[in-house]
Amino acid sequence: MENTHHPLFNWIPVKLIEKDNEIYFEWIYLGDLKYADPFFDETIAKCKSHAFNSKSFKVVSSVENLIEWSDELISVDLKSLVFHVSRCGSTMLSQSLASSSENIMVSEAPLIDQILRRDLFNDDKKSVLIKSVLKLLGQKRFPEQQHLIVKLDAWHIFKASYLRSLFPEIPFGLLYRNPTEVLKSHQKMAGMHMVPHVLPSIIFGISAKEINEISFEQYGGLVLEKYFQGFLDFYKRDTNVVMLNYNEGMKAVLEKFISFIKVDYADDALEKIYDRLKRHSKNQSVVFTGDQFKEEALQIDFSRLDVLHKKLNDSVVAY
């Protein structure tokens, strides 16, 4: 492969750094590791023990360096961006797809979130950076790799229209789940986006006044309402998007998604993808027997969530 002779082979950008009013990108050496862990950060953590990453100094570049270098490496084709509402099977989806050696599966890379949410760049520079970072994360490091699939953070649904402007031909997937099950999962261990003030509430379109008027649990319900509405809004105005319902079963979700993005896997690759569903999404050594939730009732008003959830279900039926 041509990439093997490039000095940046196996190097990827992982972090945006602001210092002395300048912006840099920190890089890390992957060695022979693939993005096989449930989350991108877990793979990066494993890389830190490599000799190239254990030195007292960090490898950094300028913004322009990153953009220029992204055109020097061969990358696989971007096949889809996956949006989700959290605790809805997105990790199982990404882990199943990652089990195919043909796929490069990037799952919630923090650098993508840093670029999308920070107001450090004008729109043109931000757009170039997003494309450049995806090229570098999707560099062809193994001969069998052909497809790049990127699972975004849950709140990136509010950036869907912007991302569509960057990737007008790329299929988008929207994965959701019954709201009670989503919020029951967060009841056990709340994700940071479900906790007031951890992420700026403006991301979700929630005002400070609204936060002060609702309970801690209801805040999570309100965030989920915003996700559901974001899904519905985008689905109405975009024709290259598929709605995926966890409650139809993850095998059905995978079949629908793979068909929609028009990737033809060989039978043995499909067998590996579907076989991964038998194991826990975050721990391959554990057989998945279904989710276990706390018995305590959720102190949440589900009236609006139920209406939005029905609309999502209706859109799936209409597909």
Rank of each mutant, 00 (worst) to 15 (best):
I130F: 08
L116S: 10
S94P: 13
A318Q: 03
S90T: 06
G290D: 00
D123W: 06
Q229N: 02
Y246K: 00
N240A: 12
M194D: 11
L244N: 06
L137Q: 06
S101W: 08
N313K: 10
V198G: 00
F302I: 03
G138A: 04
G249H: 13
M92P: 00
K294R: 03
L97Y: 11
F288S: 02
Y24Q: 02
M250D: 06
E102Y: 13
Y29V: 00
I74L: 12
Q284C: 00
L199W: 14
F158G: 04
L232V: 07
M243R: 07
V253W: 10
V317K: 02
D37H: 06
L222V: 02
L93Q: 05
S62V: 09
E295W: 05
D275V: 00
L93F: 15
D238N: 13
E64G: 09
H193Y: 06
H156F: 14
F172H: 07
H84R: 06
S127G: 09
K159N: 02
A318F: 07
Q218I: 06
H309D: 15
S185V: 03
Q187M: 11
V14C: 11
Y35R: 01
S165V: 07
A109P: 15
Y274G: 03
N245G: 11
I206D: 01
M92E: 02
V59H: 01
H6C: 09
V195C: 07
D32P: 05
V60D: 14
M194N: 10
D264V: 10
A252F: 14
L222K: 07
L30Y: 09
H147W: 05
Q95A: 10
N65Y: 15
D113F: 11
P196S: 01
E26T: 00
A269V: 13
K55Q: 15
I130G: 07
F25P: 13
V223A: 08
I258K: 07
S99A: 14
L8W: 15
I273H: 04
G230K: 04
Y246R: 00
F288D: 03
K294P: 14
Y274H: 06
K282D: 12
H84D: 05
V76T: 04
K140N: 15
K209M: 09
H280S: 02
N65S: 14
K256F: 08
W11K: 05
N103Q: 11
W69E: 13
R164E: 14
G173K: 01
K209R: 05
S90N: 03
T91W: 11
I115C: 12
I300M: 08
K19S: 04
C47R: 01
Y246A: 02
E169V: 05
M243S: 15
F231I: 07
S215M: 11
V195M: 07
G249L: 14
L148T: 12
K294F: 15
G290R: 00
I211D: 01
Y274P: 13
Q292N: 03
I203Y: 03
L66I: 09
E248K: 10
T289P: 00
F9Q: 05
L222F: 10
K58D: 10
V76M: 06
F204E: 01
V316H: 01
L244Q: 05
E42V: 04
I300D: 04
R279N: 04
P7E: 10
S80E: 07
G205Y: 06
K184C: 12
A266E: 03
S165N: 03
G138R: 03
G221E: 06
V85W: 04
L8F: 15
S80F: 14
L8D: 13
A154R: 05
L66V: 09
K209C: 09
E108V: 14
A297K: 00
N313Q: 13
D124K: 13
